[in-house]
């Protein structure tokens, strides 16, 4: 089951609905070789993502461009949700149960492209520190990049 293939050409909102449906229909645990399991393993699996998220959050808090969005937030919860979200994006055995990205960022101060790209840089720094291979980094970023449409807002 590779629901992400259905993303092509449809809006993210429609895709999220389709994804939820697809996951509901997908009975039982995902077993056997996943097509891109190598990328998930390159991140060190779920444990690797949990460890990565500690440094990612530290970077976001150290970066004056992103700190205002995270310093007063529930960082423990955000880290846990990011682990699920990244794990799912990497086709790992996880299911992100949090809010969709538009709802999750509503009410925050304006988020510009500069803020979004700053977060990408902080994530890249964290992935470098965890020695995630560059090609695996780019596969994750390719999945996350389109989310800018729901995250950025005036």
């Amino acid at each position: 089951m590779r629901p992400h293939l259905m993303f092509t050409g449809i809006s993210l909102r429609a895709a999220v609905t389709a994804l939820t449906l697809a996951l509901t229909l997908c009975v039982g645990p995902v077993d056997g070789a996943r097509a891109d399991d190598a990328t998930f393993q390159a991140f060190g699996g779920k444990a690797g993502l949990q460890s990565l998220m500690e440094d990612f959050m530290a970077n976001l808090l150290a970066d004056s461009r992103t700190r205002p969005f995270f310093e007063k937030a529930n960082q423990t919860r955000i880290k846990a949700q990011l682990v699920d979200q990244f794990c799912q994006a990497l086709e790992g055995p996880c299911h992100y149960k949090g809010l969709d990205m538009a709802s999750a960022h509503k009410g925050l101060p304006p988020i510009t492209r500069e803020h979004f790209n700053a977060l990408v840089e902080d994530l890249q720094d964290a992935m470098d520190k965890h020695q995630v291979p560059f090609t695996a980094q780019n596969k994750l970023l390719a999945k996350l990049a389109p989310l800018h449409r729901d995250i950025e807002h005036p």
Partner: peptide, 17 residues
Amino acid sequence: VGAKVRLAGDAVLEQDS
């Protein structure tokens, strides 16, 4: 002397398009 204008798209972020 050159000028360039971006008309559409984003080469970097629109990875699902």
